[in-house]
């Protein structure tokens, strides 16, 4: 039987639930970064995770339902990050500056997938994201 793409049984999980308020983006980043370090993730991937968290939180503020949650847990040598309440990650709304200049990366979804190449990034239209990344020994 093939392994599920996103482990559903996660031991030693930490989770935070926050109002989707722009002022709390820093809190979300701090929590996810601290939790990732706690589970042994190296500093480079932690910085990538900080950016991913910020993008997801921004999406939640702009398109979510008012509350966003981040959960992290370790399964063997893998770190599983769940984010819920982030709202839909549109595949056709490009990132853009206030002047209307379109940033060439494309969409926020593109940016998230570029941050974790070769890693499972599972997105659904209900506003939940799961990222599974390896923890280097």
């Amino acid at each position: 039987m093939p392994e599920p793409a996103v482990p559903t049984a996660v031991a030693d999980e930490v989770r935070i639930e926050l109002p989707a308020d722009a002022a709390l983006a820093l809190t979300a980043r701090m929590f996810v970064a601290a939790a990732a370090r706690h589970f042994g993730l190296d500093e480079g991937p932690v910085e990538d995770l900080r950016l991913a968290t910020s993008e997801l939180f921004t999406n939640a503020v702009e398109s979510g339902n008012g509350s966003v949650a981040f959960g992290l847990g370790r399964v063997g040598e893998r770190l599983v990050i769940h984010a819920s309440g982030i709202g839909p990650l549109s595949s056709d709304e490009p990132l853009a500056a206030e002047t209307g200049d379109v940033l060439p990366m494309g969409t926020r979804r593109d940016l998230l997938e570029a941050l974790f190449p070769g890693t499972d990034v599972t997105l659904d239209d209900g506003g939940t994201v799961a990222i599974v990344t390896s923890i280097d020994a």
């Binding site: 930490v14 989770r15 926050l18 109002p19 709390l24 809190t27 929590f31």
Partner: peptide, 15 residues
């Protein structure tokens, strides 16, 4: 700012 929960041995009190 919200609610923080941890399970198992993942009590993350400081970082």
């Amino acid at each position: 700012a919200g609610t923080f929960t941890s399970t198992g041995e993942g009590t993350l009190t400081t970082a």
